[in-house]
Design a protein around this nucleic acid. Structure first.
Length: 959
RNA sequence: GCCCAGGUGGUGGAAUUGGUAGACACGCAAGACUUAAAAUCUUGUCACUUCGGUGGUGCGGGUUCGAUUCCCGCCCUGGGCACCA
């Protein structure tokens, strides 16, 4: 017999398969056992061609394909090229070669390599995402999303290079500078297109229950979406207090060492005689506003004082008391200019003017205060106030801002410990209250500094920085305390509400900030009741509440629930953001949108698809978006839509192309639909049956594909909600020291060289044997020979062919068929191969195998080593493609043994092994074991306490 | 810091409803064949050992007749996320 020569036979059969089109997809008739959709993650056709990872990944799926097909399934095992993307464009910028040409050239190479590794794809029918026939449907789907409100054009912060006048990606920013022109990068908000993936946040988590995916992949997806259950708590904002009791010596301040005087006062609400409005005073010297007030002299009633004060202070002559509110409220007032601290009690008196008869005030009186009328709302809000510190300033238009600050928290139980708020510098609240902010320059400066930073830089510096917003205070809704508001870059604009209720006693970041800015730290949770407080410690755990009024003494969980109920509302927040799909790049799917002269976006319409990527574009970067420079695109737009209409000049993120390709494969030639209902039903009734690809796509690609399916289901184009029913990852291929192969490390092995040296079959067998499918494979050339030797041994078996197999061989073969079948089904390829090697080892001793049994063995091995098995099958068995023959069956009876091997233990230690007939019962077995001389040695002179028998496995004697 | 995966001979790995640890393969060693080498074949290959055994699956405990497998507490490696409230 000739020597095993992989080079010769592999070429020969690859040609045969191609000519016979044995891998051609059959979309007409279901298989005996049904249909199966098996999919590989399709590659980007890079200039380097395959790397070892491709070889591994395609082999994994090919083994499954051949196995399923022989089992009687009609298998869809398609292939494609994810051919839009940056490398081709960058290559174009460098060399001037059009990306189209580069892509065509690389694609050819990929097709050659698929053939040479023996991968069974329908290669005459591959999808290429950069072909207009494909991207027509990417655009059509964009249109569907657009029509169904699943797209959004909105502003988002991006890296902006002021000299190139373009957005660049995070990867293109080198330590805050543009990699091309080295100018400082700014954070700038610009409009771009988004897909509303966040509409599906909950479904994207929940539906993971439905699919058979690796657990870690599911967890990663869940973490990426990052759902957090918590609460939203609103903080009212009030104007700044001018009086600072801690500040000794100021004009308005509390004076230490000066006596305090208590006094009763009135606050008079003066109502207009006809209209529903109220009088407000405006003191000129101190820039305060408020009601008429006055001290109650001894012997006077509040009513009398009120009437008197109105006449004196306002000049109106006919006040009539409507109501006197009974309760005196407390407040502190530190008298201006006098050497006394006045602690005042206020009583509110409602007065209505009979008419507007008024005594003209003299110049001196006019200098003191002005009047104006204000509406009822302000009076009402004043009456509701509990802390009437400064009643004359309630009317101040700086007070009680409409805007409230929303905060998100997972620890509502710490609300009583909130001693300040922090907003992200980009929080819109700041813009909304801009007029009221003092020291605007400082705020502006800080914002600018933050926006200059990229996200990365912002995270690098962990030292807390920030600026206090002077002019406003927030009110802690629980304690009613006035708390300061800061902006700081440790709070992120895009997460939660972009603002944080700071609890320095129970959050490390808040603690650090509080330390730096000397803010109050208020302990409200302790580990348990007994433990003494250590001031400097930040206790971030849950525990027992204290200093929290009625919630003190509750555990965190219970208190959280109650506090949310009283002061806020339950709310979830997600880490997931909407998917930004706009790219200012050339080599991608053009966004099929045009703008009316008014600037309104409009979908170009189905009849104008494919909305072709213009060719008259100089893609060398000069600052403007590449498509912006196409005259053809502008002309096209105006010709179809009219004068003044403008095309969108952005292209789509290439992840969009790959987010739906699996829906195109079943009907890739269809010119009317992205996939007909018939083909959906035929090939993809519930989703892709098995999807194989790298774990590096755990996040983006899988998430996007899942979003597409959910969105299309919502619109009504699909009736299933998860794209990939079963998913398996393959590991990486590493060099001998276990490092990932990469161009930059210079440790890559070229699959072409490997195939030249060992042949595709040996390479495939080694890859599948070296490690479990999901683990990394270490490429060790000296180990590949093991796989080669194995195939050589198989090759030689032709010499042993007899009429009948020996009993031993027959028994082993039937066991092998049973085992290998289930192992392939479970993708446990490494043990499947080792079992086949064991079988060959048995055969080498026996040298007696029938033609029929050898045929069965070849079928088992064929998925792993298709060429050599095809050759042997055709030489030794029959002239027929082995792939088209049925998978071997086994006889259950022939796999059964008469005897079993029993391990006998004494005290859990193996002492003997005995061959025992299956016909024996437990008692018989026990007596055999106890008589065994090896066992006797260990139990002699000892009392037998217990005998544990595990049927056909172990017998343990306890003494 | 958090999340995920993992840690078994010289190497890749096998074995888990708890039941012979190291299958299979690489490498290595010895032998056969050969003038010789390669290839091939045979035998051996966890460590220690007084050849009776003993220890051994990252470390330390625990449960059990019996633990690589289950529980508790650590250590290390790889990957991901991260000032995420």
């Amino acid at each position: 017999m000739k020597k095993y020569n992989p080079k010769k036979i592999e070429k020969k059969w690859q040609k045969n398969w191609q000519e016979k089109k044995i891998h051609k997809t059959n979309s007409n008739k279901k298989g005996k056992k049904g249909n199966f959709y098996l999919l590989d993650m399709f590659p980007y056709p890079s200039g380097e061609g395959f790397h070892m990872g491709h070889l591994e990944s395609y082999t994994i799926s090919d083994v499954f394909y051949r196995y399923k097909k022989m089992q009687g399934f009609n298998v869809l095992h398609p292939q494609g090229l994810d051919s839009f993307g940056l490398p081709a464009e960058n290559y174009a910028i460098k060399t001037g070669t059009h990306p189209k040409k580069t892509t065509q050239k690389n694609s050819k190479n990929f097709l050659r390599q698929w053939t040479e590794i023996g991968s069974g794809h329908d290669l005459e029918n591959i999808l290429i995402t950069s072909n207009p026939e494909y991207y027509k449907w990417t655009q059509w789907l964009f249109g569907e999303f657009f029509k169904n409100n699943l797209t959004q054009r909105k502003k988002e912060k991006t890296n902006w290079c002021p000299s190139c006048k373009t957005i660049i990606s995070n990867e293109q920013v080198e330590s805050g500078k543009c990699e091309r022109c080295k100018s400082e990068i700014l954070q700038k908000e610009i409009f771009s297109w988004f897909f509303k993936i966040t509409d599906f946040s909950d479904a994207l988590i929940k539906d993971l229950e439905k699919v058979d995916w690796p657990e870690h992949t599911k967890k990663n997806q869940t973490n990426w979406i990052g759902k957090k259950e918590g609460a939203e708590i609103e903080f009212s904002v009030i104007e700044k207090d001018f009086v600072d009791i801690n500040n000794d010596g100021g004009k308005d301040s509390y004076k230490k060492g000066v006596k305090e005087v208590e006094r009763d006062n009135v606050v008079v609400i003066v109502e207009h005689p006809k209209e529903d409005k109220f009088l407000c005073l405006k003191w000129k010297k101190v820039d305060w506003q408020g009601f008429v007030t006055g001290g109650i002299e001894d012997g006077q009633t509040a009513k009398q004082t009120a009437e008197q004060e109105v006449i004196e202070e306002t000049g109106y002559q006919n006040p009539e008391v409507v109501k006197v509110y009974n309760n005196f409220s407390h407040g502190k007032f530190f008298h201006v200019g006098k050497k006394v601290n006045r602690f005042a009690h206020y009583q509110i008196v409602h007065v209505k003017l009979k008419n507007l008869k008024r005594k003209e005030r003299n110049e001196e009186e006019k200098e003191i205060a002005d009047f104006f009328w204000t509406d009822k709302k302000k009076v009402e809000s004043f009456l509701k106030r509990e802390d009437m510190k400064y009643p004359w300033r309630v009317f101040n238009n700086k007070n009680f801002l409409k805007e409230k600050i929303k905060t998100f928290t997972t620890r509502a139980d710490t609300l009583y410990g909130v001693t300040y708020l922090v907003l992200a510098p980009e929080n819109n609240f700041i813009k909304n209250i801009w007029d009221r902010i003092e020291k605007k320059k400082e705020v502006e400066k800080y914002q600018e500094k933050t926006f200059k930073k990229t996200e990365k830089q912002r995270l690098e510096n962990k030292e807390k920085t920030g600026v206090k917003i002077e002019g406003v205070f927030a009110e802690n809704p629980a304690t009613k305390e006035k708390i300061p508001i800061f902006i700081s870059d440790y709070v992120l604009g895009g997460y939660g509400t972009g603002s944080v209720m700071a609890v320095p006693a129970h959050d490390q970041r808040d603690f650090d900030f509080a330390k730096k800015f000397n803010l109050e730290i208020k302990n409200v949770v302790s580990k348990n009741n007994k433990e003494k407080e250590i001031k400097e410690d930040v206790f971030q755990g849950e525990g027992i509440l204290k200093n929290s009024e009625e919630f003190s003494g509750m555990d965190s969980e219970k208190a959280r629930e109650k506090i949310i109920k009283k002061f806020g509302k339950k709310k979830n927040t997600y880490r997931l953001r909407d998917w930004s799909v706009s790219r200012q790049r050339y080599w991608g799917t053009p966004i099929p949108i045009v703008y009316s002269p008014k600037g309104e976006p409009k979908f170009v319409g189905e009849k104008n698809l494919p909305w072709l990527l213009p060719e008259d574009v100089d893609f060398k970067p000069d600052g403007t978006a590449p498509l912006e420079k196409s005259k053809e695109l502008k002309k096209r737009t105006e010709k179809i839509f009219g004068k003044g209409w403008k095309p969108e000049t952005e292209t789509m993120d290439t992840f969009v192309d790959s987010a739906w390709y699996f829906l195109r494969h079943p009907d890739s030639k269809n010119k009317k639909e992205f996939c007909s209902e018939k083909m959906k039903k035929f090939w993809i009734p519930k989703g892709v049956d098995l999807y194989i690809g790298g774990a590096e796509h755990t996040y983006m690609h899988l998430l996007y594909a899942r979003f597409f399916v959910k969105a299309l289901k919502k619109i009504g184009h699909l009736n299933f909600s998860e794209p990939f029913l079963k998913l398996r990852h393959q590991g990486f291929v590493c060099d001998e020291s276990g490092k990932k192969m990469s161009k930059s490390k210079g440790n890559v092995v070229n699959p072409d060289d490997v195939i030249k040296k060992f042949g595709a079959d040996a390479a495939r067998v080694y890859m599948m044997f070296a490690a479990p499918v999901e683990d990394d494979v270490i490429w060790k050339e000296e180990s590949v020979v093991g796989a080669y030797r194995f195939l050589e041994k198989v090759w030689k078996i032709g010499e042993y062919l007899e009429k009948k197999s020996s009993k031993e061989v027959e028994k082993n073969l039937h066991k092998l068929i049973k085992k290998v079948s289930s192992q392939i089904e479970d993708l446990k390829y490494n043990t499947a191969i080792s079992d086949m090697m064991k079988f060959i080892n048995v055969l080498e001793k026996e040298k007696e195998i029938s033609k029929k049994d050898f045929s069965s063995f070849l079928k088992l091995l064929h998925p792993f080593a298709p060429h050599v098995c095809e050759e042997l099958y055709n030489e030794k068995i029959e002239k027929k493609n082995i792939l088209l023959t049925p998978w071997p069956k086994y006889d259950e009876k022939k796999t059964e043994e008469e005897n079993f091997f029993l391990v006998v233990q004494v005290l859990g230690k193996k002492r003997a092994g005995i061959e025992i007939s299956k016909s024996k019962n437990q008692k018989e077995i026990e007596s055999i074991c106890l008589k065994n001389p090896e066992v006797k040695k260990w139990i002699e002179g000892k009392k037998i306490k217990k005998i544990i028998y595990v049927p056909e496995k172990i017998l343990n004697i306890v003494v």
